[in-house]
């Protein structure tokens, strides 16, 4: 039988899952329109994609140094999801966006997703370039070296680096700055948060990384439900922290 801590984990997971599905069904039924607070980085991204189409220059997507199947899976999926949403727009452009990965699984998944997007967009299948997705390194710092080299070689009009990145993101951002690419960056790595903040004008901080789907995807009821669930859970956690602190303080004084 599961231990108590696992049981609590399972209950919390079921609670979040139930909330997510319930809110998603409600949003689909009521066709809920939700206004999001503006995130400068995501607002500018559409402009960057348009520039990519107009100028014929490629857009670079870094999907992080994480993999699919380990604890950094969700961060890697966010990077791939961003690339997927943007590639739907970029599929009309002359050149395929370039994607850099640091793990075999994320590389294969990104390649599969990009190929599917190009097959789904009418007339885009011929423009798909299988070498557009590259595994440029197998460790964080070798990725930094490889991705910097891709930036110098391709000179992309814009670079979007979202995923699990640590300090190794900074050389990539510096390389992007040298080729004058418009840049958007964010990481789910706690120790790496300062890097995009100092490295680019439009940094995505903390859990904003996970909100990318709601800002970029046209069919977004699932993503809106995700944000609503996150907000509800956040309020519950904040409430628990405040009540817990008060209770402990009172017990400390009178107990």
């Amino acid at each position: 039988m599961p231990e108590l801590i696992d049981l609590i984990g399972l209950v919390v997971l079921l609670l979040i899952g139930g909330l997510l599905i319930g809110l998603q069904m409600r949003n689909q039924r009521n066709r809920t329109q939700v206004a999001f607070r503006p995130i400068a980085a995501y607002s500018k991204l559409r402009g960057y994609l348009s520039e990519g189409i107009e100028t014929g220059r490629r857009v670079h997507f870094g999907i992080g140094t994480g993999s699919v199947g380990a604890e950094d899976t969700s961060a890697t999926l966010v990077g791939i999801q961003t690339m997927q949403a943007a590639a739907t727009t970029l599929a009309t452009a002359e050149k395929t966006p370039i994607v850099t990965a640091a793990d075999g699984t994320s590389f294969l998944l990104a390649q599969d997703v990009l190929r599917t997007v190009y097959q789904q967009v009418p007339g885009a299948a011929d423009r798909y370039d299988a070498d557009a997705v590259q595994m440029v390194g197998v460790s964080p710092w070798s990725y930094a070296a490889g991705a910097s080299m891709v930036m110098h070689g391709e000179k992309p009009i814009a670079s979007v680096t979202l995923g699990d990145y640590g300090d190794e993101l900074l050389p990539v951002l510096e390389a992007g700055d040298r080729v004058e690419a418009r840049q958007l960056a964010g990481t789910t790595n706690n120790t790496g948060q300062a890097v995009p903040y100092v490295g680019v004008d439009d940094a995505v901080i903390g859990e904003e990384v996970y909100a990318v789907g709601a800002y970029l995807t046209p069919e977004r009821s699932a993503y809106v439900a995700s944000l609503q669930t996150q907000d509800i859970m956040r309020l519950l956690i904040v409430g628990s922290l405040i009540i817990g602190s008060i209770v402990l303080t009172v017990l400390d004084i009178f107990g």
């Binding site: 997971l13 979040i16 706690n190």
Partner: peptide, 18 residues
């Protein structure tokens, strides 16, 4: 930031799972 990231991670996983 850690709490926010943890919630984001769980919900991303659940979205794929569902």
């Amino acid at each position: 930031i850690l709490i926010g990231l943890a919630l984001g991670t769980i919900i991303t996983g659940l979205r794929i799972f569902t």
